[in-house]
Measured scan of single mutants.
Amino acid sequence: KSAVKALFDYKAQREDELTFTKSAIIQNVEKQDGGWWRGDYGGKKQLWFPSNYVEEMI
């Protein structure tokens, strides 16, 4: 599983989504079709976030 870095702040709209700030590192990313991926951040595990808010880390 990979890690991504947030390009923008994102505030969860639902309880199954992540809230994060710009430059946050989201771990254990599971990529899905449809523009939403799952990952771990801030003590939350495998919640959804919009993939267009992040960049992949190499």
Rank of each mutant, 00 (worst) to 15 (best):
E56H: 07
T19A: 07
M57A: 09
L18I: 04
Q46V: 02
R38A: 06
E30K: 13
L7G: 06
K1R: 15
G43P: 08
K1F: 10
V29F: 02
K11D: 15
S23I: 03
S51Q: 09
K45G: 05
E15V: 12
D9T: 04
L47T: 04
W37P: 03
T21I: 12
G35K: 09
F20A: 01
R14H: 13
E55A: 10
K11Y: 14
G34V: 05
M57W: 13
S51T: 09
F20I: 05
A12S: 09
V54I: 06
A12E: 06
Q46M: 08
R14W: 10
E56K: 06
A3N: 14
K44C: 11
I26W: 00
E56N: 08
K5T: 09
G43D: 13
K31D: 03
I25N: 03
W37D: 05
P50R: 01
N28D: 05
D40M: 00
Y41P: 02
A3G: 08
S2F: 14
T21R: 12
E30I: 15
D33P: 14
W48L: 13
Y53A: 11
W37L: 04
V54M: 02
N52R: 10
V29P: 00
D33G: 10
F8T: 09
Y53I: 12
F49H: 03
K45L: 14
V29N: 01
T19S: 14
K11H: 14
L18K: 01
E30W: 11
I58F: 13
Y53T: 09
G35P: 11
K31N: 02
N28T: 00
Y41E: 03
P50W: 04
S23A: 13
D16M: 07
Y10R: 03
N52T: 13
K44P: 02
G43F: 06
I26V: 05
V54F: 02
F8A: 12
S2I: 15
K1I: 12
L47R: 09
M57K: 05
T21V: 12
N52Q: 11
F49Y: 02
M57Q: 09
A24H: 05
G39F: 00
A6I: 03
D9W: 03
A12K: 03
V29C: 06
K1Q: 13
K31C: 07
S51E: 09
K44L: 12
D40P: 00
F49T: 01
R38P: 03
K31V: 09
S51F: 06
Q13M: 12
K44M: 13
K5C: 14
Y53H: 10
Q13Y: 06
F20W: 01
F20G: 02
Q32Y: 15
F20P: 03
Q27L: 15
L47G: 15
Y53F: 12
V4H: 08
P50D: 05
W48A: 05
F49N: 00
G42H: 08
P50A: 01
G43S: 10
K5H: 06
S23Y: 13
V54W: 02
E56W: 07
N52D: 14
G34I: 05
E55S: 10
F49G: 01
W36L: 04
L18W: 04
A3Y: 13
Q46H: 09
Y10H: 06
N28P: 03
D40L: 00
L18F: 04
G43M: 07
W48P: 01
T19P: 04
K1E: 10
F49L: 03
K22N: 07
I25V: 12
E55K: 09
I26S: 01
K45S: 12
L7H: 06
Y41L: 10
G43H: 08
P50Q: 03
D33L: 11
D33V: 11
K22V: 11
K31R: 13
W48K: 10
E30G: 09
E17W: 00
S23P: 02
V54A: 06
D9M: 01
E15F: 10
L47D: 04
L18T: 00
T21E: 14
N28S: 06
K1A: 12
R14I: 06
G39I: 02
L7D: 06
K45F: 14
K44G: 12
A3V: 15
S51I: 07
W37I: 02
Y53P: 01
T19W: 07
R14P: 05
D9C: 10
W48R: 11
V4K: 02
D33Q: 11
I26L: 06
T21Y: 11
K44V: 08
G34E: 08
F8H: 13
D40G: 00
A24N: 07
Q13S: 10
G42R: 08
D16H: 08
M57H: 11
Q27Y: 14
K44A: 13
Y41G: 02
G42P: 02
T19R: 02
R38M: 10
F49A: 01
I58N: 14
W37T: 03
E15H: 11
M57C: 15
K31W: 06
E56V: 12
S51K: 10
K11A: 14
E17G: 03
W36G: 02
S51M: 11
V4A: 12
F8N: 11
Y53W: 07
G35R: 07
L7Q: 08
D40I: 00
Q13W: 06
F20L: 05
S2T: 15
K44H: 12
L47P: 01
Y10G: 05
L18A: 01
A6L: 03
S23G: 15
T21Q: 12
A12D: 04
I25H: 05
K11L: 15
E30M: 14
A24G: 09
S2G: 13
A3I: 15
N52K: 10
D40W: 00
A6K: 01
E30T: 15
T21C: 15
L47H: 14
T19H: 04
N52F: 10
Y10W: 08
K31Y: 08
R14S: 14
K1T: 14
D40V: 00
I26K: 01
G42M: 10
I58K: 12
L7W: 05
A12P: 05
W36N: 03
A3Q: 14
Y53L: 15
L47A: 15
T21W: 08
Q13H: 09
W36M: 08
G39Q: 00
I58T: 15
G35E: 10
D16L: 06
D9P: 09
Q32V: 15
K11R: 09
M57R: 06
L18R: 00
E55I: 12
K45Y: 14
D16R: 03
W36P: 02
G35H: 08
F8D: 10
W48Y: 10
S51R: 09
K45I: 15
P50C: 09
K45H: 13
G39E: 02
K45M: 13
G42V: 04
Y10D: 06
Q46T: 05
L47N: 09
F20Q: 02
K45P: 02
L18Q: 01
D9R: 01
W37A: 04
S2Y: 12
T19V: 04
F49E: 03
R38H: 03
Q46Y: 08
K22W: 03
T19I: 02
K1L: 13
D9K: 01
Y41I: 07
K45A: 09
E55G: 07
Q46A: 11
D40R: 00
G42S: 08
K44S: 12
I26F: 04
L18G: 00
E30F: 11
V54D: 01
K11F: 15
S2E: 10
R38F: 05
A3M: 15
D9Y: 03
K31L: 06
I58H: 13
K44R: 11
M57V: 14
Y41H: 10
F8C: 15
W37S: 06
F8V: 11
G42F: 05
R14F: 10
Y41K: 02
K31H: 05
I26Y: 00
V29Y: 02
A6M: 02
L47E: 05
E56R: 04
Q32R: 14
Q27I: 15
N52M: 12
L47Q: 09
W37C: 05
G34Q: 07
I58M: 13
S2N: 13
V4Q: 05
F49K: 02
W36Q: 05
W36T: 00
A24T: 07
S51L: 06
Q32S: 14
Y10T: 06
A24F: 00
S23H: 15
G43A: 09
D9G: 06
R38L: 11
T21A: 12
A12F: 01
E30L: 14
K11W: 13
T21G: 11
K44N: 10
L47M: 13
